[in-house]
Nucleic acid binder design. Sequence first.
DNA 1: CTAATAGTTCGGTAACAGAACGAATTATTA
DNA 2: TAATAATTCGTTCTGTTACCGAACTATTAG
Lengths: 403, 403
Amino acid sequence: MTNPGNVSRQLSMSTIVQAITTYGPISRASVSKMTGLSKQTVSEIVGQLEADGWVGTVGQTEGHVGRRAVVYEVVPDAALVASVDLGGTKVRVALCNLTGAVVAETVAPTVMTGGDAVTDQIASMIHRLTTDHNIDRSKVRSIVVGVPGVPQADGTIAYAPNVPGIETLNFPETLSTKTGVEVVVENDVNLAALGEHWMTKRGDSDDIVYLSIGTGIGAGLVIGGNLVRGSTGAAGEVGYLPFGADPFDPESLRVGALERVSATLALIDYYRDRTGKNLDVPGIFEAALTGDTAAQESLERAAKNIALAIGAITAVIDPSCIVIGGSIGARKELRELIRPALASCFPRSIPIENTLLGNHAALAGATSIALSRLHIALFTGGLKGAEINVPPPELGTFQEGAA
Amino acid sequence: MTNPGNVSRQLSMSTIVQAITTYGPISRASVSKMTGLSKQTVSEIVGQLEADGWVGTVGQTEGHVGRRAVVYEVVPDAALVASVDLGGTKVRVALCNLTGAVVAETVAPTVMTGGDAVTDQIASMIHRLTTDHNIDRSKVRSIVVGVPGVPQADGTIAYAPNVPGIETLNFPETLSTKTGVEVVVENDVNLAALGEHWMTKRGDSDDIVYLSIGTGIGAGLVIGGNLVRGSTGAAGEVGYLPFGADPFDPESLRVGALERVSATLALIDYYRDRTGKNLDVPGIFEAALTGDTAAQESLERAAKNIALAIGAITAVIDPSCIVIGGSIGARKELRELIRPALASCFPRSIPIENTLLGNHAALAGATSIALSRLHIALFTGGLKGAEINVPPPELGTFQEGAA
DNA sequence: CTAATAGTTCGGTAACAGAACGAATTATTA
DNA sequence: TAATAATTCGTTCTGTTACCGAACTATTAG
């Protein structure tokens, strides 16, 4: 296989693959100039990559003085990865090629009959996608699954009440045996954070926080370009920030002081307490627009507490930008309430941005991890310092609405 | 010089230096087995290292079957680094050798006559140490300075009110020209965090937080073994956590809501408001011991708010352990008040530990950075993935009381 | 035809692995 | 006690891989 034995060769190959993925289509002469490797070495390695089917020629240069150069590009469909977003209500599966482009995508309601059934469902959705789109199944080399819980070292997934039966199952192993492909499991909010970071070069920042506000409130942290999971996988559990509700109230130990005043139930309960009426979250947003004071106050209280949360996060890790998503967080009205609240409780101004990927953020993050792992497996043999940075595809690829 | 041109050789050399520093004294045959490099290669590289004076023989093995092996060790004094802790009242300077051992140390009151004077002071303290201990000055290869402020990209140090005149000076460049050695500047609390992490293998954890409580309150974060500085260098500025005092009070924007109720002035002010009497912080601790309720309440209020801060930090980054230091934080009485408060406002139990290094923590952190940089410069040529992990010296080296 | 550029061929060098070998030492046996 | 076996260390030698640079061929614009 492609993977070379010699350390020196691994580094060279990694460098060349990086150059071609990032700057392709590109000629061997240009790669040589960019990387500092000799023309001879570049030709040799590109030849091998071509023979193995990873890169291919896509034409020649024209219009310049001198001999025409043959330009190479990564063969997009030389390998595929499956990105999965396993939610409490829906499962979303995408097959992506080496450039990160979505080749096929599908959604289905999550089956609720146990962990084994969920892995079955995912396996068959992947299988279905390959057959429906006439894709060679053996091209799928890696599966990354985002789950609403905390993956443990033993393969089980803790704190995942929304997907019954995955707390007692070795999830990656089970899915791996069913598909014959390596499986990696990661928290969905973490993946969303990674996805937003990967897809959108927000000022080239490597320190961003993705804040998801919906049924619950949670954050994904990207620091120095890497995901932060914490010592027990609980990094970003900002629902437990000790303010909002009284942190010393025992109920706050269970639910989380902040979560009690900022997530879905908090909005609904507050509105009912004030008016005696039951409205769902979209209903409250709508009522607030029509001048309903109770609805407005409900949103304002949430916004104020979310601003405090952002202040707390910023005081601790000082990110360059906060991206907000989730069913509540993605609402523009809420962001506009958060900004002034934040300015009056935190000294530094910090950009608050809307998610660009919407409910596809986790899928994008899964893809970025899957591609990184694939490149390591294929070209670097796990060599430290030879990691390949996969550039993101067109923004539209993962934007909401597709499928 | 030692630094080899070829990438392959750099990796091999890095591996071998790592093995000798970590497991020395060690024979070439053992290095070969451990690293997987051939005996031939190991002999060649060790020979070069010995010729250049970085490693030396320290005897032979005995008592085993077979030919005796010559064992090698890093020559501890082949190079030195200078670690500096620049505080508002004292400057502490230590010269450390390649094993991290303190070779010479000195302390002096910080000069208050401007930034240039401070760099002069540090330069002359280093010079003095070398002459007093008969050390060849050219052996000092790297200087790392901890400062009570935020180092900027342009070399100035922001937010450093306690050391006048270093906010407008290119600090590292100035000190570097005066000493002829490369200089790195880092925030002192960050260094303390790194120092505690390096010197004390706390359950092999790579995610720890050092919380300093004294004149102000600040944290240093080590995540995945690396320092987290934040996008503006303000990571760990937990004084601005939005609770304790009212975060929406404009005064909190200036001082920081948490800092207003947990640091030195907060203790003193609270006690004076309650009793009309002025006591300093040690006085308040003493009074609390003798049963003075106002003093006890002052400490309890601080402890409660510090517990909230720890809860907030844990909710965000989930460290495996919090190390507390600083003039107030190092008090055992305070820690014993914090623990129960934390248990009643945060669901997960998290170890709260006393600093093991006391006021030498920043110095230890400076040494760890300096040694890392030195190893990179000497042996790896900055090659990614070839970093050398320098094991810490004996714990006593940096413990309080020395000098 | 000339200058410029692309890509190949060839020769030389650095680095490494592995085998063979000599040296030094302990353990075992006659 | 002396010879021998077994074991380990370290060097030498040989072959392979990977790299670079120079020379060379091929192609193109002007």
